[in-house]
Design a binder for these strands. Structure first.
Length: 262
DNA sequence: ATGGTTGATATTCAA
């Protein structure tokens, strides 16, 4: 059984309902994981997605902030939602497909502006989220699992437009990269996107503040697809649908795709 | 060094 999975920070699922539909129609992933839905679960616009064949949903939401959802053409059952770092935010939801694969959808805290937990509580919360993830993987080794989401960290030098200029910018600091790496190692996770596309600059986010995001191309790869080692070799066809960043009233993130032959 | 934009909600905060 092969299935295609996508992850997209949608930055308001209610405002961008039509863009979600456009991606569902144009690219037709079997499973679509969204972050920053910014909506209570009961206000997520389901009907249009159902009409396009996405009859299954699991989600966590809150009013105005955060929020994660998984829409699927394939049957899935909820497999838990955890409150990493104890923030009381809707930042994680898990679902299990009928083939036994578990999908974890994360929205890691952005971390504020100053990369110092002594003066910026949000940065500390981001590091704590990743430490909690690491400890959870040490306590309970994941198997047959996929982890996706807006991890708000671009780990590699070629995941940002300028490694040197971003070393002190939240999302690319050595401290964050180290924390992310520890979580990745603790769960035996493979970076599917970079295994598929090992060379070259690769971005999934471009700031709204650029005059011309496409021409400036000052992007970062904040959105990730990981898989545990036991299924990682089944992954192929990774890609980032950059076009979506140029759609009318876009999210500042582009969706990331991978296909699994399982 | 600074400011730039967007969304939800409220006239500010978070990203």
């Amino acid at each position: 059984m092969a299935f295609t999975l996508a992850t997209w920070n949608i930055n308001s699922v209610r405002l961008r309902e039509q863009l979600v539909c456009k991606l569902m129609e144009a690219e037709a992933p079997d499973v679509l994981c969204l972050q920053e839905c910014k909506s209570p679960v009961d206000k997520i616009p389901l009907e249009a997605f159902k009409a396009l064949g996405y009859g299954h949903m699991v989600a966590r939401g809150e009013k105005g902030y955060n929020g994660v959802a998984i829409f699927s053409k394939l049957p899935l059952e909820e497999a838990g939602a955890e409150d990493f770092a104890g923030l009381g935010h809707a930042r994680h939801i898990a679902a299990r497909l009928e083939n036994g694969v578990t999908i974890h959808n994360h929205y890691v805290p952005a971390g504020g502006d100053v990369p110092d937990r002594e003066v910026n509580v949000k940065f500390g919360q981001k590091l704590d989220y990743l430490t909690d993830l690491r400890d959870a993987f040490h306590a309970n080794a994941p198997e047959k699992s996929i982890l996706v989401g807006d991890l708000n960290i671009a780990p590699r030098e070629d995941d940002v437009w300028s490694h040197k200029q971003l070393l002190k910018v939240v999302s690319h600091t050595p401290t964050e990269v180290e924390h992310l790496g520890e979580a990745q190692d603790a769960g035996n996770w493979v970076d599917v996107t970079r295994t598929d596309i090992p060379e070259g600059q690769l971005y999934s986010w471009w700031s709204y503040r650029a005059r011309d995001w496409d021409a400036a191309d000052k992007g970062r790869r904040l959105d990730h697809i990981w898989a545990t080692k036991d299924i990682a070799s089944a992954a192929h066809g990774s890609r980032i649908v950059r076009d979506a960043r140029g759609w009318e009233k876009p999210s500042d993130h582009a969706p990331v795709f991978a296909t699994f032959d399982l």
